[in-house]
Design a protein around this nucleic acid. Structure first.
Ligand SMILES: [Mn+2]
Ligand SMILES: [Mn+2]
Ligand SMILES: [Zn+2]
Ligand SMILES: [Zn+2]
Lengths: 141, 141
DNA sequence: TAGCACTTTGCAACCCGGTTGCAAAAATCT
DNA sequence: AGATTTTTGCAACCGGGTTGCAAAGTGCTA
């Protein structure tokens, strides 16, 4: 699907030097069906150390190549940013965490409405997570 | 402000037997200016063990005496429920986490509008957190 | 009131996700 | 090549949360 040079140009566009590990992590993110956790990446990238994955993800965050959110258990979930510009979550789309299968969904079709904060509160980023049952688990239950 | 028997009747109303520790934790929650973490309660309740505080909070959660949310660092924040009935966060009010002073605010005056989830997703609870600067830190910065 | 069952509590240990110091390996520069 | 910088793996650490277990407390019964 994505050749390595595809990914290299994507990374270059974000100002990220493409190393072997960065290509692997980026590829894993593209192939994931949804948001993934550090633990999930550890499982799928057995050749790469946890700390290296963590550092790659941190770098990706700093360069707006991925965005992250807490899934409701206090676990960070990462996924590639689809927008080209800065992606600091201020666009505010929704995430869904399934309490049965413990998977997260990026509901980026649902934009969170504009919120008017009380005087003095300055927002930097938004994190809107709905917890419940995903369509899959709802039926198998 | 709140006598011990005030608190005892509040707890009784939620079906919670009032023990010494439960009164202490409940009082600490009433006296807090906003949502508090387990660590904060540990600091203010030096006579009570961390695990005991944790178990009291878990009990309170089960009886809808408090609600909890992740503040964006993966840390749980607790606060008393104001509503009398079940408080499973389905009302969906907003919380604000200040990245400078690391304090959370319960913006329960701001109700988030009804969200229409994609077909098949069944919501149980909502967690809407805005991160940024609180009025205090915005000025002192 | 003594005996007994049940509940609550403190302590210590554990779990797990995340994070860091450090030295080896790899890439880049002169 | 040799020096310098960056990346990586490893091991250890951190902090919030959680649990097993035995001691202490509570309440009831005889
Ligand atoms: Mn997303
Ligand atoms: Mn609240
Ligand atoms: Zn599911
Ligand atoms: Zn602040």
């Amino acid at each position: 699907m994505h050749t390595n040079s595809d990914i290299e140009t994507k990374l270059a566009g974000k100002g990220i030097k493409p190393t072997a590990n960065r290509l692997l992590v980026y590829r894993a993110l593209t192939e994931a069906s949804g948001p993934v956790t550090l633990a999930m990446l550890e499982d799928s990238l057995v050749t790469v150390d946890k700390s290296s994955i963590f550092r790659v993800l941190t770098l990706f965050l700093e360069h707006d190549a991925v965005h992250a959110f807490e899934d409701g258990r206090g676990v960070l979930n990462y996924e590639l940013c689809t927008t080209d510009g800065a992606c600091n979550m201020t666009d505010g789309h929704l995430h869904f965490y399934c309490e049965a299968c413990h998977h997260s969904y990026c509901l980026d079709t649902i934009k969170t409405p504009e919120l008017v904060l009380p005087e003095g509160f300055t927002p930097h980023s938004l994190s809107f997570v709905v917890k419940g049952l995903c369509p899959h688990c709802r039926h198998s239950h």
